[in-house]
């Protein structure tokens, strides 16, 4: 149970980072921490003590226990999506830096309301 609670705490740390930080890069890091915590949570779901990789080979014994492959597939997809999101966010942050000369969100405020 403890790993799951730690995962949830990591998730909350990510949200805390997004809400309190004023630096664009730190906000992106906060989002990345949230993403990792969710990935960690998913991988814990599929974990079995003593399980092996879920692939049948010559060396697989008949009574071997596999870890659940489905969460792994989910995480792989989630990682790819996270990669795209983070890359896009970083590109936006660089562009914003060029326009404003700063990463501080308090100075980036052309939109109101």
């Amino acid at each position: 149970m403890i790993p799951f609670i730690l995962c949830f705490i990591l998730f909350l740390i990510g949200i805390y980072g997004i809400i309190t930080q004023k630096n664009l890069i730190k906000i992106i890091i906060g989002l990345a921490i949230m993403e990792y915590s969710v990935n960690l949570f998913l991988i814990l779901i599929g974990y079995i003590n003593g399980g092996t990789a879920p692939i049948i080979t010559h060396y697989t014994s008949a009574n071997a226990s596999f870890v659940d492959p489905l969460p792994q597939a989910l995480i792989l997809t989630a990682i790819v999506i996270g990669l795209a999101t983070t890359a896009l966010l970083l590109a936006l942050a660089i562009r914003l830096y060029r326009k404003y000369g700063t990463f501080d969100i308090r100075k980036i405020n052309s939109l109101k309301g």
């Binding site: 990669l83 890359a87 590109a91 660089i94 562009r95 830096y97 060029r98």
Partner: peptide
């Protein structure tokens, strides 16, 4: 992605 970000950063 890597080349784009590096080139981009270089320009900025």
């Amino acid at each position: 992605i890597f080349i784009a970000l590096v080139v981009f950063k270089d320009e900025v």
